[in-house]
Design a protein around this nucleic acid. Structure first.
Lengths: 192, 192
DNA sequence: TGCAAGTTTGCATCCCGTGCAGTTATTCCG
DNA sequence: CGGAATAACTGCACGGGATGCAAACTTGCA
């Protein structure tokens, strides 16, 4: 029966998710500074101390889930056909994941909206993005056999476009996110 | 004689700089977490409490100077000839400032190197960059009469390229920074 | 059942950041 | 010059964040 692990592992995963949801929910409701670790812990029925066994800090608990998204993008890029160039594969992987016409992950939206209102969370999110950037750049560099600055610029500007498109879309949740992202990426394609 | 203000103002500026230098120096020496606000304050001959009259927190004290750089870039862009398109003006302003062949600001290098080793500082630096991005995007949008996603993507990818080039250059301080940046920007020009 | 390993918890501790109020320094002006 | 007004510095107290430690307590397994 056990999904992937013993009861111990499953319980941990459950608790982690519960803590995350508590953190995110409270923060949405009362703002980042308006919520204490103690509240989060209470809401999730664990002790203050145990909170820190699961997450390294408050921001970490709230932003849980980003890593998973990032892992998926990296995996998707890696799985693109080997004959595709770095740019083609990168663009395709991005649209494949973020450009889905399905309604995007509500929790991701909640996290991102929250981050836009709280500099500390925004900073954290951006730092995570840098990490993603490095992983992607490595893959692109391998694909194109280019160890120079080009893969890095390519990846970081793609992520920049992704960010810009997402922000525009979040300003007025009009139209589909997929369209906004495609439009953002197209700006990169043509010369300015 | 007074440069711009009375003795009061000058003294404040001096102290602020002293605190910044103390913070940066100690952090370079002992790492971000290895230095406490108290140490910084002591080194700069002020009280712990007064430290917080000058800077909102430790990271702020260490990253002091970034804002000034950013203000300069914004001003430079604003001063470009009105007939230049957003992209041309942006590129020109960037090269004008960061592409100088003079040896780049040693303190900026120290800050940036430090930020690369300390996630918390990196996060802060990136958050500042977002602020710059918004200002630049507004100016570009005005120039091009475009209220859509295009100016944002343009600006954020330019900054991304700038960042990538800087990072490559910092890895092995070989060649001039100006060349690295020009190369980075050129990647954006051509299609991938 | 009982032991080994893993998890939770409380406690103590240090540091960060801020409100407050008293003291000290600077500026302004009669 | 000298005193009032203003601004800056400081100590204190406090709440909250984050971590090491050791004592419970669970769980898994022989």
């Amino acid at each position: 029966m056990s999904g992937t692990q013993g009861l111990r592992e499953r319980k941990k995963a459950e608790t982690r998710l519960a803590v995350h949801r508590a953190a995110l929910g409270l923060a949405v409701e009362k703002g980042y500074d308006g919520v204490t670790v103690e509240e989060i812990a209470d809401t999730a029925n664990i002790s203050r101390r145990t909170f820190f066994n699961y997450f390294s800090d408050k921001a970490d608990a709230m932003m849980y889930g980003e890593e998973e998204r990032h892992r998926r993008l990296v995996a998707t890029l890696r799985d693109r056909p080997a004959e595709e160039s770095g740019w083609v594969a990168l663009r395709a992987a991005t649209l494949e994941l973020f450009g889905s016409f399905d309604s995007p992950d509500r929790e991701w939206i909640a996290r991102t909206r929250l981050a836009r209102r709280h500099p500390l969370l925004l900073a954290r999110q951006l730092a995570n993005l840098i990490h993603l950037e490095q992983q992607l750049a490595t893959l692109v560099a391998e694909r194109d056999g280019d160890t120079g600055v080009r893969p890095r610029v390519m990846v970081s500007s793609l992520l920049a476009a992704l960010r810009a498109a997402t922000n525009v879309w979040l300003d007025d949740e009009a139209g589909s996110l997929a369209e906004a992202i495609e439009e953002g990426l197209d700006v990169l394609a043509g010369p300015y």
